[in-house]
Design a binder for these strands. Structure first.
Length: 733
RNA sequence: GCCGGAGUGGCGGAAUGGCAGACGCGACGGACUCAAAAUCCGUUGUCCCUCGCGGACGUGUGGGUUCAAAUCCCACCUCCGGCACCA
């Protein structure tokens, strides 16, 4: 308890309480079956060097909520670790000639110290670093499991390559129409490479099911769009040679309107279909298309182009022989890489048909309208309608058409109802040094051979050349790659690519539970008690990357018998971004970066914690306001004064005043409790300020030294404890 | 084009069918002080007036439901985010 004449001095009280909590092990979380558990997880930081306000904004309100849950009687786990592999370490190494490991671990030490000054309840015994061999041993182990179960595979394909980062990227890491690298904003190009993939597409349907999750609408929508489910039909056409040519369509009701087909330029049947007289033209188009994928995509309204292969295919619904074209608007990576073209009812096909004078045949009549004259059409008629000129299904009304055609196709054995997804398998190979090795050895005899589990971890060598060469640094290491084939003992070579760091972060929430356990990635007893994560907090930017990967990872592990339950994180909440005072993103180049450390010295962690909760709605974020923090500092000084200064005496107390105090205290308690539950942090601080104003008023009216006052003080300090833990401890008797 | 989110004082925001603008910032006036800082008190949506315990208007726009709408319904406008030659 502070002496009454002491002024509020965070610089004195905060380190003292932090030392005390640590010495007492107050925030150690251990399995305790007698209490309900609460696993509060916040997205782990990348050890970039300094803890900035983005970190504070993500972590300190999450910590306040974890503390609130703890005060409610939950056995709370609030851990923190570091996503320590990744390219910035290599870039820093190149720039400053420091080994990535040295740079990373130095930053981690620094950031741990900064995190401690924040006054969090982090249980540091459970911290993990994904670049520690005792961590990545298990990242490698998970790779082996996925490989063993056919969920990891190696494939040659045209993959996205960032020329600045010198590595391939997952489809999720290529952003926007301009196809920029998620990390460095460089335009991504295509390269044909043999790479490792995880079979995320196997889980596409299940990933669309959010029914067990309390996740924001926004994230669910982003993931749903990303997965991109389309319902339709698969139909098998036949080439003149009798080869099956499978297509996917969402409009099987337009099958009788097919007047040609279009293949992606890379489609495997292109060579065989192309006739001698068309060969030159087709080869030129294929070469041009290939080149085009290597440059930044042009505007979307570019004119459709295509080339006739000279080949034909037969439409199974009517036996008609239609020409087969190739065009670059058909993508090899979606559906089957081939389409049936119905120019009357699809705008892209319409444009190609108009350009090259191909037949346009309307077979869908909108209700109450005439069938359009193809020569007069200026655009495709894409809405549903009654099927006409459609053989046995002629006259089928719009609402029955698709289902009826699917049933009919199945009956005929020429097709069936089908679903296609936009989601691609997750490309995890990176041509970089500072990542988890892929535990595979290539043997001339046996191909890609997984290492036995007891040979893990494959350790990263320290002595590498990390300067950029366009090749994986591990490939240039003189000895590391040379090893023996685990199967035959003959000479073999290690995989020199490393894993996408999103692989490391797909399971870190499991490693926190038992960071040093060495018989499995996670101690089964800890796993059974703590999982799933109860509340997960972090930025929205991971909606279609980390948050898809970790859900995939969990489901895959469930099916491999490693984990239980269908989802890793029950509730998700996204905080916004704290901007510079000019409402722009904080950045060194703009010169609008507000550094937490200087403000910490001036105001203390409690004031910053309170202000970050108060400054804006947490889910929205907003600009930093250096005057606003004065308001929170003033609030804490007023709290200090109210509870330490001698109460004015000599007045008689009106029972109504006492009653008013009690009512206000209990109303505040109810609203603060509700607001903690629903992440409405700004109104928590506002309610506490409001109550403080009332208490000042009541004290003037003689309420101090009454039982109601004692209750008010006790409740007040407990309500503020999660927000401003140090000052609450100091004032608590 | 498809999907989602958001529009409230000078500013951040509160109120999810019941006194719009809580709380804070800023601003203005005052107390304390030789002075400043800190602290404290008061005023602060807009407009009108006879200045009161007064009146009118007011939550992107236009309609509607209701005794009552920032909140519910319909139509639109603007801004932000995602996806997009996805068959």
């Amino acid at each position: 308890m502070a002496k009454d004449d002491d002024a509020y001095s965070p610089a004195e009280i905060e380190p003292r309480w932090q030392r005390r909590w640590e010495a007492d092990g107050l925030y150690h979380s251990d399995v305790d079956r007698a209490r309900p558990k609460h696993y509060a997880l916040t997205m782990l930081p990348y050890p970039s060097g300094d803890l900035h306000f983005g970190h504070w904004y993500a972590i300190s309100p999450s910590d306040a909520r974890a503390r609130f849950k703890r005060m409610q009687g939950y056995n709370v786990l609030f851990p923190m670790g570091f996503d320590a592999f990744g390219l910035p370490a290599e870039n820093a190494a190149i720039k400053n000639s420091v080994h990535p490991k040295v740079w990373t671990y130095k930053n981690i030490e620094r950031m741990r110290g900064q995190l401690r000054r924040m006054g969090t309840m982090i249980d540091w015994r459970r911290s993990t670093i994904s670049a520690d061999p005792e961590y990545y041993r298990w990242t490698e182990w998970f790779f082996l499991k996925l490989f063993e179960h056919g969920l990891a595979y190696r494939k040659m394909s045209a993959v996205d390559w960032c020329p600045s980062c010198n590595t391939t990227l997952a489809r999720e890491q290529v952003w926007g129409e301009a196809r920029l690298c998620e990390r460095c904003q460089t335009a991504v190009i295509k390269k044909d490479l043999e790479q490792w993939f995880f079979r995320t597409t196997r889980y596409a349907e299940e990933l669309l099911d959010f029914s067990r999750l309390d996740w924001p609408e926004r994230v669910r929508t982003l993931q749903t769009n990303w997965i991109g489910r389309s319902e339709g039909a698969e139909v098998v056409f036949r080439t003149a040679d009798g080869d099956p040519l499978e297509i996917f369509t969402t409009r099987p009701d337009t099958l009788w309107g097919v007047t040609f087909m279009v293949l992606a330029p890379e489609h495997p049947l292109v060579g065989k279909l192309t006739t001698d007289e068309q060969r030159t033209e087709v080869a030129a188009y294929v070469a041009q298309a290939k080149r085009q994928t290597e440059i930044q995509r042009q505007a979307l309204d570019q004119e459709k182009t295509g080339v006739f292969t000279g080949g034909h295919a037969v439409n199974p619904v009517n036996g008609e022989r239609v020409p087969v074209w190739i065009a670059d608007y058909v993508l090899m990576t979606y559906g089957t890489g081939a389409i049936m073209a119905v120019p009357a009812h699809d705008q892209r096909d319409f444009e190609l048909a108009r350009k090259y004078g191909l037949e346009i045949r309307p077979v869908i009549r909108p209700e109450g309208e005439e069938l359009p004259d193809p020569d007069a059409m200026t655009a495709a008629l894409s809405h549903y309608g009654r099927m006409v000129r459609s053989g046995p299904l002629d006259g089928t009304p719009a609402d029955e058409a698709v289902a009826k055609v699917c049933a009919w196709l199945e009956e005929q054995g020429t097709g069936r109802g089908a679903v296609t997804y936009r989601l691609r398998d997750w490309l995890i190979s990176r041509q970089r040094y500072w990542g988890s090795p892929i535990p595979i050895v290539y043997c001339p005899e046996h191909g890609a051979v997984p290492l036995p589990e007891d040979e893990l971890p494959v350790l990263l060598p320290d002595d590498v050349e990390w300067r950029p060469t366009g090749e994986s640094p591990l490939k240039l290491h003189p000895t590391w790659r040379h090893t023996k084939c685990p199967r035959c003992g003959g000479d073999g070579e290690r995989e020199t690519d490393t894993m996408d760091t999103f692989m490391c972060s797909s399971w870190y929430h499991l490693r926190y539970l038992s960071p040093h356990y060495d018989r499995a990635p996670v101690d089964p007893a800890e796993l059974a008690y703590w999982m799933p994560v109860d509340t997960y907090t972090g930025g929205i930017e991971h909606a279609t990357m980390h948050l898809i990967y970790t859900r995939f990872f969990h489901k895959a592990c469930r099916d491999m018998g490693i984990l239980a339950g269908d989802e890793p994180m029950r509730q998700l909440y996204n905080q916004g971004i704290i901007l510079g005072e000019d409402s722009e993103k904080m950045s060194k180049s703009r010169g609008n970066v507000v550094a937490p450390d200087a403000l910490l010295d001036r105001y203390g962690a409690d004031a910053i914690r309170a202000f970050l909760m108060f400054v804006a709605r947490w889910d929205q974020g907003g600009p930093w306001d250096s005057r606003g923090i004065e308001g929170c500092a003033r609030w804490l000084r007023r709290v200090w004064t109210l509870f330490t200064a001698p109460a004015p005496g000599g007045k008689t107390v009106d029972p109504e005043v006492e009653k008013r105090v009690r009512r206000k205290v209990h109303q505040t308690l109810a609203s603060v409790t509700k607001d903690f539950e629903t992440f409405q942090f700004n109104t928590i601080v506002a309610s506490l300020m409001e109550l403080l104003n009332e208490l000042y008023q009541a004290r003037e009216e003689g309420a101090a030294c009454t039982p109601a006052w004692e209750e008010a003080r006790s409740v007040y300090l407990r309500m503020m404890a999660p927000v401003t833990p140090h000052v609450a401890e100091e004032l608590w008797e």
